[in-house]
């Protein structure tokens, strides 16, 4: 990698201390994000996938310091964020914005669309005058496909897809470099979902944006991402270029996930072997020794019980599995 990454994450931990069971409970540690390392290159879309409880939402929030990291490092263009005081973080917040899953829940119902979109500018660009602010609101509304006439409307007057356009406008109005999209289309109907995905791709091309796109839907991620990171129980299982990952997943967990995605073709869907009814997800409070995935893995052996696999490079791809060579061969 010649150019330094826009975002460098190294050995990031987000651990929570929770109350254990029983009358005299001990404190247990929930490792929501555990030793996670990755880079985000300027201009790329990094997809982050995994099942519920894999830590993908906690990770997004920790990157923005909405949740404190308990260890490791996050650098934005070389500036360490985890130890940065609040005041020094403020100017950097302009560079990193977030789009949330439930557009209606994330918008203040008492504010008009114009106020909602202007709010981040008031906080992050306090020197900007009212006229310029309003112009920028209108310009951004136009970019995301909202009509200027809608500026004085309230969120409840909008459908889910329109509300998500407001959420996107609010994130983009301060001209960020990195946008973290946390399940931005999961709550939307099929016909609206594709409109929003196309909009995100257009905006990226127009403004040279970088996205971290967090989702549980692997088919959607394949559409939008350049590279994909697969998380399981807070740990990175695999990080690989999109086409390589979908064509030939190296980690058994990635293969399990891909094999379970429903295919909207009855002939193919019925020919396919259904994912075996293996163990369910272990408790995040009592992770298995060694590899976190071994209790559901068809390849697990003694080494997987004894030794936690590190993320290592194989053919230009990064995989945390003792048996990855077998899959690569």
């Amino acid at each position: 990698m010649s150019e330094p990454a826009l975002l460098e994450v190294r050995a990031l931990d987000v651990h929570f201390s929770v109350r254990g069971p029983g009358l005299l409970p001990s404190r247990l540690t929930l490792r929501a994000v555990d030793q996670v390392s990755f880079d985000v290159r300027a201009g790329e879309v990094l997809g982050v996938v995994g099942e519920s409880g894999c830590g993908k939402s906690t990770l997004s929030r920790a990157l923005l310091k909405l949740i404190p990291a308990t260890g490791g490092s996050v650098r934005l263009r070389g500036v360490e964020l985890t130890t940065l005081p609040k005041a020094a973080m403020r100017p950097l917040r302009r560079s990193m914005q977030m789009i949330f899953q439930d557009p209606l829940a994330s918008l203040d119902p008492r504010m008009t669309v114009g106020e909602i979109i202007a709010e981040p500018m008031k906080a992050l660009l306090p020197a900007m005058g009212r006229v310029e602010r309003e112009q920028r609101v209108l310009r951004t509304m136009q970019q995301v496909g909202l009509l200027p006439a809608q500026i004085n409307r309230y969120p409840h007057e909008f459908s889910g897809g329109q509300a998500q356009r407001i959420g996107i406008a609010r994130a983009l109005v301060v001209e960020p470099q990195l946008v973290i999209c946390d399940e931005p289309v999961s709550a939307l109907d099929v016909s609206i979902k594709s409109q929003i995905i196309n909009l995100l791709l257009d905006l990226r091309a127009e403004h040279g944006l970088t996205y971290i796109f967090v989702a549980h839907d692997l088919a959607t991620v394949r559409h939008i991402a350049d590279r994909v990171m697969v998380l399981y129980l807070g740990r990175v299982m695999e990080i690989t270029d999109r086409d390589a990952l979908y064509a030939r997943p190296l980690h058994p967990y990635t293969r399990l996930l891909l094999s379970a995605v429903p295919i909207p073709d009855p002939a193919l869907a019925r020919r396919r072997r259904v994912a075996p009814a293996r163990e369910e997800l272990p408790s995040p409070l009592a992770l298995p020794s060694g590899c976190a995935f071994r209790t559901r893995c068809p390849l697990a052996d003694a080494r997987c019980v004894a030794e936690r696999p590190v993320l290592r490079e194989i053919d230009g791809r990064y995989v945390a599995c003792h048996h990855a060579e077998a899959a690569a061969a």
């Binding site: 459908s159 109907d189 609206i192 979902k193 594709s194 196309n198 839907d217 394949r222 073709d265 193919l268």
Partner: peptide
């Protein structure tokens, strides 16, 4: 047709743009 074409799917080659159904519910 609109529904079937706008679903991103793993069994077909990735297209540059997703088909959409324009407009609103």
């Amino acid at each position: 047709e609109g529904l079937l074409r706008s679903v991103p799917r793993l069994d077909q080659p990735r297209s540059a743009r997703l088909a959409t159904i324009p407009g609103r519910p």
